[in-house]
Structure formats: C-alpha cells, structure tokens
C-alpha cells in the first residue's frame, strides 16, 4: 500500500490560516489502512483545527468527508457538494489523491495535509516499511525476493557495499542491509550461485527517468468505462 504520514499539525494550521471554510478530505484506502488519512483521522484533524481556531479567536468552519478513494473520479464526485461550500480543501490522501482532487475541482484551492512516504508493508501495529521503489521492471527473481532498488541505500545491483555490518545498513543501524538479506535468502534457497551473476546496468526508462509514466490497457478500454468495485 501507499504509506503516508500526516504533516505536523502546526504546518497544517499554517497551510489553512488564510481560509475561513475548509474541507478536510480523507481517503478510505491506503492511507486509511496506515492510520494517516482515513475517516477517523479526518475527523480528529477537523476537530483539532476547530479547537485551535476557537482557542485563537479565529473564525474557521471545518467540514469533513472521506470517500473510498481519491484516486478515482467516481468517488471524487461524491465530494462536489461539500467542496462547493468551502474556500479550500485540505486533502489527507496520498499525492495522487491530492492531485486528482485538484484536477477534478479546477477552481478550488487544494492543500496537502499528508506527506506520501513510500510503497510499503505493515511490519507491526504502528510500524511500516518500504519495499518497492516502483522501478517498473521487476528483478525480484534474481535477488531472492528482496529488492535492492528499494532496500539498498545506494540501490546497488551487485552489492553489498563495504558499509554492511552485522546485517545492518551504514545509513542507519535501525535498517537491515538489503544485500545482507538477499545473500541470506539466496543461501536459504540453495541459490547462492545466483549471486555470482552480474546484474548489468539497468534501463531506467521504466522508472521516473523515462518521464511521467502511464499504463494503457486497450483491451479494457474497448469495454468502456470500468465500474469501480
């Protein structure tokens, strides 16, 4: 999922201080799962903003609404009424949701209330970690199912570097060395000989280096618009 983290409250207060009526817009998918931008978080944030404004004698009206996904126009439609009632929308969806909101409501100020962190997994309650860097050409078959692009601080394809120590990365001892994990896993699988293969320079055009990316499925397009599940 996409893991996000709400911006510090003081920053959010600064972002909205020019506006009198604000809609806090939550998103019910990824950022809801990681407790950063879902319905509950939208409610808490809206209450905090009301309290803060009240405390400082600032007139502020805060509406709130959470839709299933801000990255789908169908769901954004549901927000039309409330968006029409405010000066600005504070979206706590990921960067995609925030931008799609701006695309849908062209004449409305859309503000980001959340920092989109990475594509990751839930390690345990309250802890998420990155796993995929979206390079666009998966090589996990060659690296024992551990991604060197996302999990090596230098995205080395023939690692580890000299900074690997006791299985940890030199950038932070709280982080595993991706290559130590790769070696460990290849060994467990009895495939350490795969390590000997040199992974050649990558073609990064499938990554952000190739310009803005798009996936087009003509087979689906022919069937017309897909109804959201």
């Amino acid at each position: 999922m996409i893991v996000g983290e709400q911006k510090p409250f003081e920053q959010i207060v600064k972002l909205i201080e020019r506006y009198r009526r604000v809609l806090v817009a939550g998103c019910g998918t990824c950022v809801s799962v990681c407790f950063a931008g879902g319905e509950k978080e939208a409610g808490i944030l809206a209450s905090m903003l009301r309290l803060e404004a009240q405390k400082n004698g600032r007139p502020l009206e805060v509406l709130e609404q959470t839709v299933k996904r801000q990255c789908d126009m169908e769901f954004l439609e549901e927000m039309t009424t409330k968006v029409g009632q405010v000066d600005a929308v504070l979206s706590i969806a990921c960067g995609c949701g925030i931008q799609f909101m701006a695309e849908r409501f062209q004449d409305k100020i859309i503000l980001p209330g959340l920092n989109t962190k990475f594509i990751g997994v839930t390690l345990e309650q309250g802890e998420w970690a990155e796993r995929c860097a979206m390079c666009g050409d998966c090589i996990l078959d060659r690296t024992g199912g551990v991604c060197p692009v996302a999990r090596c601080a230098k995205r080395l394809h023939n690692g580890p570097c000299g900074g690997s120590s006791g299985g940890k990365c030199e950038v932070g001892k709280d982080r595993d060395c991706g290559w130590a994990l790769i070696v460990q896993r290849l060994q467990k699988l009895g495939e350490l000989e795969r390590y000997a293969e040199i992974i050649p320079p990558r073609n990064w055009t499938t990554s952000r280096d190739g310009g803005q990316r798009k996936v087009v499925r003509e087979d689906l397009k022919e069937q017309g618009r897909i109804e959201p599940r």
Binding site: L156, H157, N158, E170, P200
Partner: peptide, 24 residues
Amino acid sequence: LSGDHQTFGSEPGAANVYDVDSIQ
C-alpha cells in the same frame, strides 16, 4: 567505487545517483 553515502557528508540533503554500481 560505489562511494560513501551522502548523508554522512557535507551535503546530506543531496540526491544520490547510483545509475550504476561499481561493478557495472
């Protein structure tokens, strides 16, 4: 060489390149 990670140096906010690694 792959090079020391930039977060240890004088420009910790720099982007790193790592288009290729030292072996490549």
